[in-house]
């Protein structure tokens, strides 16, 4: 145990650099997946068949490709097509695109949970599609969507470790590098696990808060 604390003091600052990159990848891909997910969901519920089918196809394609393959594709294949991305850019783009499919289905479920009668009432007072969305559907859908959205945040935080496969020196890769040069696997990976857990706990509490609020309504 004493050895562990000594290792922790030694490795913590290096791992902290990894934490910074983990946060950058998580936040960046979370934002991107939210925006893309909203776009896919809006296309799905637009009532325009071509947009709805395009969105459904996109979601299925994205869902059907493993995140790691998507990351490899963006980082290793795109340069062949003339688009070179940094490892960080590819990681954010890949995770953002991968998770946009789940976000879209989550947002769509929230939107479709709103009673059709309310949408008709909005139309009957002259509201168009966008005004109905903005004033009636989305404010209510947000409350339904928040608990699963929180879960997606936790999953993204953990899946940001997949960025290590394309050389982003986030927490998991930093740990691996230290472990392979010091052979102190137990100390390093325990420390890495604890650091992921520490970042996850506030998010877990946030999800619990969202769930409580959703139940109250």
């Amino acid at each position: 145990m004493k050895g562990f604390w000594r290792d922790a003091v030694e490795f913590f600052p290096i791992l902290l650099n990894g934490v910074a990159l983990t946060i950058v990848v998580t936040v960046g891909s979370l934002l991107l997946s939210t925006v893309l997910g909203l776009v896919w969901a809006m296309m799905r519920v637009s009532g325009i068949k071509a947009l709805s089918m395009l969105s459904a196809s996109l979601i299925n394609v994205i869902r059907g490709i493993p995140i790691i393959v998507l990351l490899f594709y963006l980082y290793f294949v795109m340069p062949d097509l003339g688009v070179t991305l940094t490892a960080l850019q590819a990681a954010i783009l890949g995770l953002g695109i991968a998770y946009s499919a789940y976000q879209a289905e989550n947002f769509r479920a929230g939107i479709e949970a709103i009673d059709k009668g309310q949408i008709e009432a909005a139309q009957s007072i002259g509201m168009g599609w966008w005004l109905t969305m903005r004033r009636v559907v989305l404010p209510q859908a947000v409350r339904i969507v928040l608990p699963p959205y929180g879960n997606v945040m936790i999953m993204m935080l953990k899946d940001s470790s997949q960025a290590s496969t394309i050389t982003v020196a986030e927490l998991a890769l930093q740990g691996k590098l230290i472990a392979s040069s010091t052979f102190k696997n137990t100390s390093v990976f325990t420390l890495v696990a604890l650091m992921y857990l520490t970042m996850s706990i506030p998010l877990i509490l946030l999800v619990r808060h969202f769930e409580k609020r959703a139940r109250k309504r």
């Binding site: 009673d115 009668g117 309310q118 008709e120 009432a121 404010p139 209510q140």
Partner: peptide, 10 residues
């Protein structure tokens, strides 16, 4: 005016 009122609950 609708049978089930269809007010906006939020």
């Amino acid at each position: 005016v609708f049978q089930r009122f269809n007010l906006f609950p939020h």
